[in-house]
Design a protein around this nucleic acid. Structure first.
Lengths: 192, 192, 192, 192
DNA sequence: AATGAATGAGCTTTCATTCAT
DNA sequence: GATGAATGAAAGCTCATTCAT
């Protein structure tokens, strides 16, 4: 990773953190720059505009998620085991790097997420689609559109993360229940 | 509904529509006022600040959802039937009033959704929690924390809506698959 | 003249003065506003953008010039007398209100003066064209395109003003020569 | 012309072109450098500051005009012939190198044209003054301050150029009228 | 209560200039 | 000499909020 990439990523990570804390509203370029220890104007050396920076951040986050999840997948295992790995790795990642999940949610439900944007190549989306397709083709998942399966699973995972984040400080009493969730999801999508 | 309430709601609906179209960024008070056919200053007759208006909008949307869903629930039916009614009514409502779902999503993942805010009374949250509690107590749902059940179901419903919105113009080929989703969700949460 | 018009004109006059002193470069909105005793943002109550303000200023200056010159024209006089009135009134006006002439020159040779802009209605241009047309039709001016006559005369008048401004503090020795200029110009354009 | 001079002139010509197209506003150093195929910082090897570059450009343009016009003057001819040569050469030059005329106009009516600047030696100004002085001394021009004669003639020439540029695409119908202009100007300044 | 002109802090962005390489 | 990334002051503009009418 050369010097240039380093600084670009410093800026992206700075924006990511600010967006997690304060939303898109709360990440003026001045703050992004300050937190990345560069001058405000320097952001424009790396990005054409703030909008372009946000889009780049979206690509960055998705590629980081893809890297992490695909690395830890073992295609030689049977699909049920791979599914529980996937689930655990994804929820762990979203907990460790809460800003990833927070940013993706905010981005998805924001006007940055235009139709044009959705036409961009999306390696993470393709990877998950391929993953669930393998589950179907091996006869272990219901024969549905893999996009739908993917979206259902991701929606549940995000709900779980949100729940954990939300009740973190409140109660541990429901902890054992949360372990059941991947099983519930599996029961919903498995071939039966 | 008196004159005052009328105007307040006109303003809220104007904000709702703008937020759906352009996100929080794209709803300056000046626009909200213009679309509601009032003067900018008048918004401050009804709301202390823009933030307060957004919070009020949040309460308004939730109460509208509660009204619609609870009205169409028939507690005398068996729970499985009630569940499918719930699912269908919710997804229909979110499709008819897309701004409701869009706003709730944006709100939830925004910094408006503070800890303090989450301590507010939340009739819609209480209603759904009670709904799933009845399902558990009647032995038809897994004996989990009803908050978790609720969140899982809502997450799936929202994923479905998003999917429909996203693929509206693209393909109808997956239409039959979508009918299976409530069944899948039910298979995930039912007592077994 | 109502209150609104007053403030709009205050802002225009403030911009006019700054442009005379410092050119387009030297009239940031902040300065324009300060000199007009309004807040920076208020400028945008009256003008959509800085560019629009400059274009409006152009219309304003031209209309002021037209008002002044046409008021003092006496169509019942013979054309030669009217010509010398025109010359004297124009050079007097440009000396009294040096910013008018300075602005018009800067505007004309600036990129504000686009092709599109030149399609706008231009009462001052039309008035001068009609003026010289009458001179031609009464047989007192060379039968040329009145636009050309107009442009030649204006060019000379502006050269004279520039000369006077430039040598104001330097020498009065050429004063008597300057009186001859309108005669020279007349000799150039009169029918002979 | 050595390598250094070459690069300096490349930069000046680049600035000249940008100013013609976009005015002083539209010639950031970054663009000037790019169009001259040098790095932004390199401009500062040749010029102390942007202002200094503009002033140098002014000197450059004037010296080019002087070179062109003085080369084509034939002092052995009688003055009337020399005048028409002068007129034709000047208007041709300004048409061929439109950026010269555009720059000089913008410069003259800009705040770069300070009093201090006007005290600089000005070979082109001196040449034209001397030229008209010869016309006076030979008894062929009105005995006026040659500075005035010069300014009148130049003002008319510029008006003509502007007229031609402006109506280039619009009509050729006035073409024959334009031939009469140098005659008109001559009639205005000749001894009578 | 209702208005909308006025405010000014704060935003994104540009650009002349510097300086380590 | 030449480079171009980095700087940061200053530009144009937006918008939540106020207040005289």
């Amino acid at each position: 990773m050369d010097q240039n990439t380093n600084k670009k990523i410093l800026i992206l990570e700075s924006a990511l953190e600010l967006i997690r804390e304060n939303g898109f509203h709360g990440c003026p370029i001045s703050q992004v720059a300050k937190q990345a220890s560069v001058a405000a104007g320097s952001v424009y050396t790396y990005f054409e505009s703030k909008d372009e920076m946000i889009l780049e951040l979206h690509r960055y986050v998705k590629s980081e998620v893809l890297k992490e999840i695909s690395e830890k997948d073992h295609p030689e295992k049977n699909f049920e085991a791979r599914f529980f790995d996937f689930w655990n790795n994804l929820t762990s990642l979203y907990q460790e790097r809460a800003a990833f999940q927070s940013f993706l949610e905010q981005f998805t439900s924001s006007p940055y997420n235009t139709e044009t944007m959705q036409l961009e190549s999306d390696p993470w989306g393709e990877w998950t689609e391929a993953f669930f397709k393998e589950g179907i083709e091996s006869g272990q998942l219901r024969p549905l559109n893999p996009k739908i399966l993917s979206m259902m699973v991701m929606g549940s995972a995000i709900s779980l993360i949100r729940f954990k984040t939300y009740f973190k400080t409140k109660t541990a009493s429901t902890a054992q229940d949360l372990h059941l969730i991947p099983k519930m999801v599996w029961d919903g999508i498995k071939f039966q």
